[in-house]
Design a protein around this nucleic acid. Structure first.
Lengths: 210, 210
DNA sequence: CTACCTGTTGACCATATAGTTAAGTTTTAT
DNA sequence: ATAAAACTTAACTATATGGTCAACAGGTAG
């Protein structure tokens, strides 16, 4: 018990520091890009001396990898699962709901991921790419089944997923532009619900489900 | 006449070099980000010595500004105009068509713009932001008129524009991911038409126009 | 021919930055 | 109490990079 407690304590320092660093690094990577984010700037934002950062993460690339992993994990947890039992309507509703909430709750994750893809996914491991291909194709097959069953209109399921993906992600990635256009300083609570209902309505109709 | 010709000749060298540099710089900025793109890498890609680059552009930031301007101009030219006479159906069709073609034809422009926005539009001049706000609000008003006239379903016009914007832009920005998922090396001719018809169909239905 | 303008380029420099090291301090285990 | 392990941090180093400069080339005008 004593032992356990002590391990926990040191563990906590490690975990806490690493977490603080990860958060600071995420912000810096979004704001300045991979090369533009300096270890010093991450250290300053985390409130730690630079050498301490390099104590917890061997080097800058490792920090970035950790941030990416954190991002992917967040995505994986946040995106609920769609099952055959859902049927097309509930599936689309669930998917849009989860994705919009993630965009508003973790915009940095979305942004880092977007930048990584835009730049050619140079740091993304193969397994992550393969994983996503599998994920999309799996979900696309579900939609195809529903289409074959006459439960929804015949639309290209892969592109349907792209549509949901892009339109939801947009509110995170293009936050700056959207706020400028709406003449706002930041998003408000009700925006999330408004966006969810707008997109759900549009896309369900597009699929002939409303 | 002689004079004119000579001016043109020297002018051409200038214009040609600057253009070569701009193209090379665009690629580097997309691939490596602003800080990650080095003047040397731009020079190598353009096939010119570094000092020559700095002869045509005072410094790195100027290169980037030129690239951004080039991008915005491209957008401005590529995006046809929507007029009150079009009516909602033609307007949406025109908008989607133009935007998708741009995404496939000039993905780098789209990517650079996206990265700039994601990073908080730090380099984007105020006038550009104001311009876009005006553009979106203007078009949104058009849609609102059509809605008030009963020519289309009552959907939030601002978010409708966001939807069209995001879903079309996606094919440029997330090229890498999309190609991975579709298990392809690059886009093909027919993809453009397929995407246009898919998105047009979905969104027109969403607006109750089909 | 000469003066001049445009463009070309290698060499150079100041600075910023990733990463190391070594000397310390604090915490934990026995 | 003591040894070991975990953590902290200032100082340092090697390198990469933005930007300058001075020398040079080629064509044009008078």
């Amino acid at each position: 018990m004593k032992n356990n407690k002590e391990i926990k304590k040191t563990g906590n320092i490690r975990v806490q520091s690493q977490h603080k660093i990860l958060i600071a690094a995420s912000t810096e990577f979004v704001l300045q890009g991979y090369k533009g984010a300096t270890v010093q700037s991450i250290a300053d934002r985390a409130g730690l001396p630079k050498a301490n950062i390099l104590y917890y993460f061997k080097n800058k690339e490792n920090i970035y990898h950790a941030v990416l992993e954190h991002t992917l994990q967040m995505w994986d947890e946040g995106i609920g699962d769609i099952t055959p039992e859902d049927g097309p309507k509930a599936a689309i509703e669930k998917f849009i709901d989860a994705k919009v909430r993630m965009s508003f709750k973790h915009p940095e994750s979305s942004k880092i991921y977007a930048m990584e893809i835009i730049q050619g996914a140079q740091h993304l491991k193969d397994f992550a790419r393969t994983y996503q291909r599998k994920w999309v194709r799996e979900k696309a097959q579900l939609f195809q089944k529903w289409i074959d069953n006459g439960e929804m209109r015949d639309v290209d399921p892969i592109h349907l997923i792209f549509l949901i993906w892009s339109s939801t992600q947009h509110y995170a990635d293009f936050e700056t532009q959207i706020l400028t256009i709406m003449n706002r300083a930041e998003y408000e609570e009700e925006d999330v619900e408004h966006v969810i209902s707008f997109l759900t309505d549009m896309i369900l109709r597009g699929c002939g489900l409303k």
